[in-house]
Simulated assay, not measured.
Amino acid sequence: MAYVHRVVKAGPCVEHKKMQSFRVHTKGVKRGPNTGHTTEKQERINERVAEEHLRWDINANFGHRDLHAVLHYYVKDSSFEEILENKAAFLRNLRKLCKKRGITFKAVVVIETKRMTNPHIHVIISRMDPEIITEAWENVPRGGGGISFKPMDRRGNHYKLAAYLMKESRSTMERYREIGKRGKRYSKTQNMDKPEITYTAVPASSWRKDPKARKGAVLYKFDDGSTCRSGWHEISGYPYQEYFEIFNE
């Protein structure tokens, strides 16, 4: 009898997910309620997996005082094709400006098009002078554009930010389908650090109800004050538990 323990180390955050799998599950473990159609379940899984990868990328590469920039449009009738072209032009400009200054940067980019009258582009980027980012963007869109900036916090696990950006990307995936193109929920620079992922089969019939952090770490608290979450896998119906350790940098 065993379960699978997945550990993902991304920056100061170490994620733990204990789960029954299709291949390894404990005899006698009950499945959760069967809800939704298979297609709906698969869509939820696809989005959850994309959110996990986005969270790992952010946690492994960005931290306190790096920037969350939002690129805005003054003209409100931009097409989706224009937005894609603007995103590419902004990144080209940014690379040129940073190369001149000897700056190496990392970035994650998410397009949000829920309301085409107010499209914007989210950019998670290494700490730099905001004037550089402004210069790379302000003359790119037709009619010009502005930028708002917010420094990243020091919590070490950007769980909520990844969830928010993934929610924002839903409309963008629909836009790709409308124009008959395949697109990604987010893009990133090629120099990103990768998370360290390990899977271990644990010879036990159950896991600890209330996990504890190891020495030098604290457990991440969700908005409701809890430090772990439990549920059932959308397809297999078997239970899982997840929690996050944050180590002092």
Rank of each mutant, 00 (worst) to 15 (best):
H158M: 08
I147C: 12
I103Q: 04
D57T: 01
D210T: 15
I132F: 11
N157M: 06
R155E: 08
F244K: 08
S236Y: 03
F244I: 15
L219G: 14
V75K: 13
R55V: 03
N93Y: 06
I45L: 13
E82C: 10
R185Y: 07
Q190K: 09
P195R: 10
K215W: 14
A201S: 11
L165G: 00
P141G: 01
N46C: 04
S206E: 15
E51Y: 01
A213T: 04
C228W: 10
V4M: 13
Q20T: 02
H37C: 05
T134N: 07
L54G: 11
P203Y: 13
K150H: 02
L71A: 01
A162C: 13
Y238I: 10
I147S: 11
T26L: 02
Y74N: 15
E138F: 15
L67V: 06
A2L: 13
R170E: 03
K17I: 15
G216D: 02
R177D: 10
P239K: 04
R185D: 00
N46V: 04
K106N: 06
G28P: 12
G102C: 09
R23A: 15
R155G: 13
D66K: 02
E85H: 03
K100I: 15
G216H: 01
L97E: 14
H64S: 05
P211K: 00
Y159G: 05
R229K: 14
R170V: 08
I58W: 06
F222R: 01
N118S: 08
R92L: 04
W207S: 05
E242K: 06
N93C: 08
Q42M: 15
R92N: 09
G225Q: 07
E81F: 04
R175F: 09
V140P: 04
C13K: 14
G180K: 04
W56M: 04
D210P: 00
I132L: 07
S79Q: 02
R177M: 04
L161T: 08
N59W: 13
Y73F: 12
C98G: 09
H122T: 08
I58A: 10
R154H: 00
H233E: 10
W232N: 13
M1Y: 11
R92C: 07
N118W: 03
K160M: 10
L97W: 11
R65A: 01
D224W: 08
A60G: 08
E249C: 03
K150S: 12
R65E: 00
R155L: 04
D210I: 13
E138G: 01
H158T: 00
I147T: 13
P130C: 05
R44H: 07
E52M: 07
G28M: 09
P33I: 12
K27P: 01
R185N: 12
E138Y: 15
N34S: 15
G180V: 11
I179E: 14
G237V: 14
V7H: 07
R6Q: 14
E52D: 15
